[in-house]
């Protein structure tokens, strides 16, 4: 039995199909990332699994039960900050523990333990209004890891966090999770999704690819990505770069260009030389192995961020 089983799921808003026949299976203990741009349907899918919304058709099961009957297993952390800024971290957690039926003394003990797990013991009595974004998100995750939770759903938990806070957040997640709890991470950030053992890419309400991060990259984005920043942007720059990119594909970004190559190391040197010969000053050039964002681009011909915006 899967921790989460979704079959042919359909959800429509105002005659627009937000989810269009989605299938998904997440085994017990798996860390699964669902990646896609805003409007792709990933948050809707998460809210249906979390019993917050209902589907038009299709099957959704959490440990073999309908989500509404499996609420005691589900720890859901919505994208918005839901902790009360007027209460302290401890008061917020006691509130959730009491809602879940823990007595005052049980709640006190449990909350102390959970606060320790998310690294907030020292800040427990501070009002949440004084927490940083990262601390607040940790606190909110703490509301979803009380004993008995088997499925943790994190909806864009790192939105608004700086890279250091994001790293610290995921270290915490890895520390607190045991191998029985399944995690679904909803994200549009490729580097976050890379941490998952399996990733599903969703676009326009359909799952367009699924696999481990390495599988996805091997299958859909075999090229290395070279990012070139030049002093000026011009058609002549573009024509030089096109000659080194697979199928002449050059993606323009705010600060420069991206080209794709099957042999990035060699192309890097060639691009620098050709640009120099053509009289174009290269301000910065770097090569990166393909990311999940690149996989998404290959599959949809759109950037995740562009699609998001």
């Amino acid at each position: 039995m899967f921790a989460i089983h979704v079959e042919n799921l359909v959800k429509t808003y105002d005659s627009r199909r937000v989810l269009d026949g989605v299938n998904l299976d997440v085994p017990e203990g798996e860390f699964y990332a669902l990646m896609g741009p805003n409007g792709s349907g990933k948050t809707t899918l998460a809210s249906i699994i979390a019993a917050v919304k209902t589907q038009d058709s299709g099957i959704v099961e959490v440990h073999g039960k309908k989500p509404a009957q499996a609420k005691e297993f589900i720890g859901y952390v919505p994208q918005e900050n839901f902790s009360s800024p007027k209460l302290s971290g401890k008061e917020n957690l006691v509130y959730f523990a009491n809602l879940l039926g823990y007595s005052r003394s049980q709640a006190k003990q449990l909350v102390a333990e959970v606060l320790k797990n998310v690294g907030l013991s020292e800040e427990a009595d501070k009002r949440v209004a004084k927490y940083s974004g990262g601390m607040r998100k940790r606190l909110e995750v703490a509301t979803a890891i009380f004993p008995g939770i088997k499925v943790l759903i994190l909806d864009e938990p790192t939105t608004g966090l700086d890279p250091a806070a994001r790293r610290s957040f995921f270290s915490m997640i890895q520390e607190i999770m045991d191998n029985k709890t399944s995690i679904i991470l909803i994200t549009h950030i490729g580097s976050d999704a890379e941490l998952a053992s399996r990733v599903g890419l969703i676009d326009s309400g359909k799952m367009i690819a699924e696999g481990t991060p390495d599988e996805l990259k091997r299958k859909h984005a075999v090229e290395d990505v070279i990012t070139v920043e030049t002093a000026v942007k011009a058609d002549s720059v573009l024509s030089v770069l096109k000659s080194y990119s697979i199928n002449g594909k050059v993606v323009e970004s705010e600060t420069g260009y991206k080209i794709y190559s099957r042999n990035g190391d060699r192309a890097l040197a060639d691009v620098v030389r050709s640009m120099d010969q053509a009289g174009h000053k290269v301000m910065r050039i770097e090569m990166a192995r393909p990311t999940l964002e690149d996989v998404f681009f290959r599959l949809t011909e759109r950037h995740l961020q562009e699609a998001t915006g």
């Binding site: 979390a50 609420k71 589900i74 918005e80 839901f82 809602l99």
Partner: peptide, 16 residues
């Protein structure tokens, strides 16, 4: 306020 800040989503997902 609770609806706007996401608490309502959280509460709906809980056995309350």
């Amino acid at each position: 306020g609770d609806r706007q800040n996401g608490l309502l989503s959280k509460l709906i997902s809980m056995p309350i």
